[in-house]
């Protein structure tokens, strides 16, 4: 179950002009399960602007520390990536969201750029549970994959992709998916990538594809009803019923 507590920024690495890797020391330790996320304040002390906390995938957990991978995307993430310095005290609510455990023993993680933050830890947990885990991690250029230095110690079997061929295989992370039809796919990345994989899955009639979605959220705990997405079974809260949804319940308008 989740908690709200203080989280001290212990380490911050700027990975590119838009990405940062953060290690936070949390005052109250809670087990982070696959695909869970946190809500983090994105303001300086005594400021209430931006007002809302931001949802971020939890990249890993070790003792009382959690790792985050954040892209400067808007007003809140910009403050975190660019302005906030080490030893800063955030207010965090975590771990949130419905944990996702696939039934099959072979899991393919498909991560596009910052999407790695949403599913990487799931891969580590599945591997520890004895499942066969394969990670496909793609970005536009090598810079987008800098985070790999912090992830390689978890020894997930990984294939990298870059669109410009500057690192790993040249091309899109989605290009080789048909080689993994006997795996359950867990996907997180930019909308265009997720939509493309959604369409491919529909074409292949593959039913065990799951998407970890990201929407604007106000509370993260299921009370504001602001993060709903459209599904075949009506509106669902991304923070509570999600963030992971199956291809069978999603529609094109869900993304």
């Amino acid at each position: 179950m989740f908690t709200q507590c203080e989280a001290v920024l212990e380490e911050k690495r700027i990975l590119s002009e838009k990405d940062a890797f953060l290690v936070l020391k949390v005052k109250e330790k809670k087990e982070v399960k696959p695909c869970q996320f946190c809500m983090l304040t994105a303001t300086f002390k005594k400021s209430f602007d931006p007002f809302l906390k931001r949802p971020f995938g939890i990249l890993f957990q070790k003792d009382d520390k959690i790792g985050l991978f954040i892209r400067n995307f808007g007003r809140g993430s910009s403050i975190i990536v660019k302005d906030i310095k080490e030893s800063f005290k955030f207010d965090i609510t975590y771990p949130l969201g419905n944990p996702f455990y696939p039934k099959k023993d072979k899991i393919l993680l498909v991560a596009g750029g910052i999407g790695i933050a949403g599913i990487f830890w799931a891969g580590v947990v599945y591997k520890n549970l004895g499942k066969k885990v394969k990670l496909l991690f793609g970005g536009r250029t090598e810079k987008d994959l800098e985070i790999r230095y912090f992830l390689e110690k978890y020894n997930l079997d990984t294939t990298y992709y870059t669109e410009d061929g500057s690192f790993g295989k040249k091309g899109l992370v989605s290009q080789d998916l048909e080689n993994y039809l006997d795996y359950t796919w867990l996907v997180c990345g930019p909308k265009a990538m997720m939509k493309a994989i959604f369409e491919l899955g529909k074409k292949l009639n593959k039913k065990d594809i799951f998407f970890s979605l990201d929407t604007y959220m106000a509370c993260g705990i299921g009370v504001c009803l602001g993060c709903t997405i459209e599904t075949k079974n009506g509106y669902k809260r991304c923070c509570k019923e999600g963030p992971v949804f199956s291809i069978e319940e999603l529609m094109e308008s869900s993304f």
Binding site: F48, D49, P50, F51, L52, R75, T215, Y216, M217, A218, C224, L225, G226, C227, T228, I229, E230, Y235
Partner: peptide, 18 residues
């Protein structure tokens, strides 16, 4: 309720269309 999007953050506030 209403179709998404349902939130829009403003300076020091938010708009909702739940």
């Amino acid at each position: 309720g209403n179709p998404p999007p349902r939130l829009y953050e403003t300076y020091a506030g938010l708009l909702n269309s739940i």
